[in-house]
Simulated scan of single mutants.
Amino acid sequence: MVVAKIVYASMTGNNEEIAGIVEDELQKYGVDTTVTEVSQAVAEDFEDADICVVATYTYSDVGDGVLPDEAVDFYEDLKELDLTGKVYGCCGSGDKFYDAFATSVDDFAKAFAETGATQGATNVKIDLAPEADDITALEKFTKDLVDKQAAM
């Protein structure tokens, strides 16, 4: 059985909702999926998963986008792992009001790339809460992850 681990950081609830959408989609494909809020997660949990997903927001302070405080240790620990043979995907919400729109999504993708994991889907960035078009994008994101993992 294929196993997926989703870790999310959410201040407003948007990324918790995004993680739930991805979880529901993965389960439609028969993937055993676990979702954990980042402050309750350890990066090593990804070592036991076939598909690894991070859904995060970007904290914007005077236009600069930075990782959420509660995700920094997880991020640093992630970069130290060897996730060769795993598939990853990154998604999250941001606010297009800020110049640094959803940059933490890209930061996590770079961290995963350092682990040797294979990117399974294009990053998905959502302006605030997910709407119909965003849900469609997350459905494609999930299908791409499952297809990439099946091809490995």
Rank of each mutant, 00 (worst) to 15 (best):
M1P: 10
V2Y: 11
V2A: 11
V2R: 07
V3E: 04
A4V: 05
Y8I: 15
Y8P: 14
A9C: 07
A9F: 07
M11P: 11
G13K: 03
N14K: 07
N14A: 15
E16N: 05
E25D: 10
L26Q: 08
Q27T: 07
V35S: 02
V38C: 11
V38G: 08
V38D: 12
F46C: 03
E47H: 00
E47T: 15
E47I: 11
E47C: 08
D50M: 03
V53D: 10
A55F: 09
A55D: 12
A55R: 01
Y57F: 15
T58S: 00
D61Y: 11
V62A: 15
G65M: 15
V66H: 12
L67Q: 14
P68S: 07
E70D: 14
F74C: 01
E76W: 02
K79N: 12
K79D: 03
E80L: 07
D82C: 08
L83V: 09
T84P: 04
V87D: 12
V87M: 01
G89Y: 04
G89Q: 02
G92H: 03
G92L: 04
G94R: 00
K96D: 09
K96P: 00
K96I: 02
Y98T: 06
T103E: 14
T103H: 00
S104R: 13
D106M: 09
D107P: 00
D107L: 15
A109C: 09
K110Q: 11
A111D: 07
A111S: 07
T118R: 09
T122R: 02
N123H: 06
K125A: 08
D127T: 03
L128E: 13
A129T: 15
D133Y: 11
D133Q: 14
A137W: 02
E139M: 05
E139R: 09
F141H: 04
F141Y: 09
F141L: 01
T142I: 03
T142M: 06
K143N: 13
D144A: 13
D144V: 14
D147S: 14
K148W: 01
K148Y: 03
A150M: 15
A151P: 02
M152E: 06
